[in-house]
Each structure stands twice: as C-alpha cells, then as structure tokens.
Amino acid sequence: MNETLAQILIIVGVLLGTVTIAAGLIYVERKMLAVWQQRLGPNRVGPFGIFQVLADMVKIFFKEDWIPPFVDKKVFVIAPTIIMLSVLMSFAIVPFAPGVVVADLNIGLLFFLAMSSLGAYTIVLSGWASNNKYSLLGGVRGAAQMISYEVFMGLSLMGVVLLAGSFNMTEIVNAQKGMWFVIPQFVGFVIFLIAGIAETHRLPFDLPEAESELIAGFHSEYSGMKFGMFFVGEYLGITLVSSMITVLFFGGWLGPAFLPPIVWFLIKMFSFILFFILLRATLPRPRYDQLMSYGWKLLLPLALLNVLVTGAVVLYNH
C-alpha cells in the first residue's frame, strides 16, 4: 500500500513538476532573452514581472478557440494533443533522483526515442489539417527535419548505450559514477545536443514555423488553448531534452553530497535550459537545405564514426 502511494506521489509530482517548469519557462525565456539582448524584459505583472506566466495563461485560456471552417476538424483538434502526450510520456522514464522515476523500463532510452518520433506527427498533422499553404509547407519541413534528426539522435546515443551496457536510464546514470559520459562521448554529446534542438524545433532550427517566411508555419491557424498546447509542448520538449542530456551525459543526479541528488539534477537541467535560450538569443535560422545537408553530410557520418570508435574501444577493453 505504502509503495503504491509513493508511486502515485511520484507520478503526480513528475507530472505537476514538469508542467510547472514548462509554464515557468514562458517567463524565464522572455526574461533571459531580454537579459542577453540588453533589454529589461517583462516587468509589469508583479515584482520583476514573475506573474507574467499567469497573465499569459489567462490570456491564452480566454482567447476564442477558433476552428476555421476549411480545416479537417478531427485531425485539427487531435494534432496539438499529440505533442503534449508524447513529451509527457517521455518524462516517465527520466530518473530525477535515485528511486524517483515513474517507470524504470529496461528499454527506457528506446522508449524516449519512440515517443520523440511520435512527436513528429503533431507537426505533420497540424500542417496538413490546417488546409493552408504555409501550414502545409511547415508540416512538410517539420516532417523531413524531425525524421532526419531522429536518425542522428538515436545513433549519437548508441555510444552511451555501449559504454553503459544498458538501455535502462537508472543504470546509465549509475554507470557514470567514475566519469561523466560527456568526456568519452563528447562527439555524441554535441550531436545529441544539435539533434535535440532540431527535434524540439527550437529557434536556430525552427524551420517548421519560421515566422519570417511561413507566418507561423504549422500552427498558423491555431488559437486559444490549442495554440497554448503547442506552446507548452515546445517548452516541455526543451525540459525533456535538457533532462535527457543531464541523465545521459552529465551524470544525472550524481554530484558532491552536500546537496540532495534531486537538486543536482535540477541545477544541471536548468543550466541546459538556459543554454537553449542563449542559443535562441544568438544564432540566426539556417536555410532549409543547409539544415538538411548539415545533418546528412556532417552529423550522420560523425555519429556513425562515433559508434564505430566507441564499439572498437569497448571491444578492446572487454
């Protein structure tokens, strides 16, 4: 009974925690972008504007939820839920601290990859269902981009799997007790970072939405809470990729003992979230063909080479 209660507490805690973090990122992102662009940023609602999140939420909830008459209604409604669902499902396998994990699957990493590959549907379907040229272009771009970068994402993680000898996330963290995997797997880390940005279609690689050329791409036709789902889904995606980087390459909850493990995890995760925001503040959007050729001609061979070398080293030491 007690164990069941603890499990339920963990599930509720992870769900509420991640959604709260994702909502809080609305404020954090705007404030940090302002800080890096020498602006003041949100400062109206509450002290330092920290209630901006609430204001934004109220705004999104009370906006008219308009479904245009020309859209494919069912698919239009389903599409935004997919991203929330797939990302929240992925959080189930993230070990936040020893024992604090919703489902300690033995194929945890594969589960993450599976869920992130399902995330591609949200872009494709919303782009198609909107029945709008710009949305369709965004959907087509999104599909091609996400499928391509999933390949390198999976391959870049294989080095970690080889070193840890398991797909289980907890075991991967425990295997990093001696040395974080970012040192032997630096190439894998860089590739995973880039693929993670492309997978969450964050700003340097936000070609599916590319507001300067496609208006808002796949979510041009969305309003109200349906748009909010895309919005929060994107922030959830950032949180997910940051926590995956933390778990896979930076030792998860491991750290000196003067702080509890969960705090170490959160510190590492938030520094990666901030790095994502810094990336958005800095880099311009590449051209679409540049993005694809960068992926297929540079990252794919690099990822394959990484797997090959890691495999050889592991085999040699075996």
Binding site: V35, W36, Q38, R39, L40, A281, T282, L283
Partner: peptide, 19 residues
C-alpha cells in the same frame, strides 16, 4: 558560433539599453 554564443552571454553584464 561558439564565439558568438560567448559574446551574447557577456551581454548579460552590460548596461540595459531600454528603460
């Protein structure tokens, strides 16, 4: 790109241009 990331990061400590 890495260099520009660092330069944008340093903007954190500069004076604000807005009021």
């Amino acid at each position: 790109s890495v260099r520009s990331l660092w330069m944008v990061f340093l903007k954190m400590f500069k004076k604000r241009v807005t009021i």
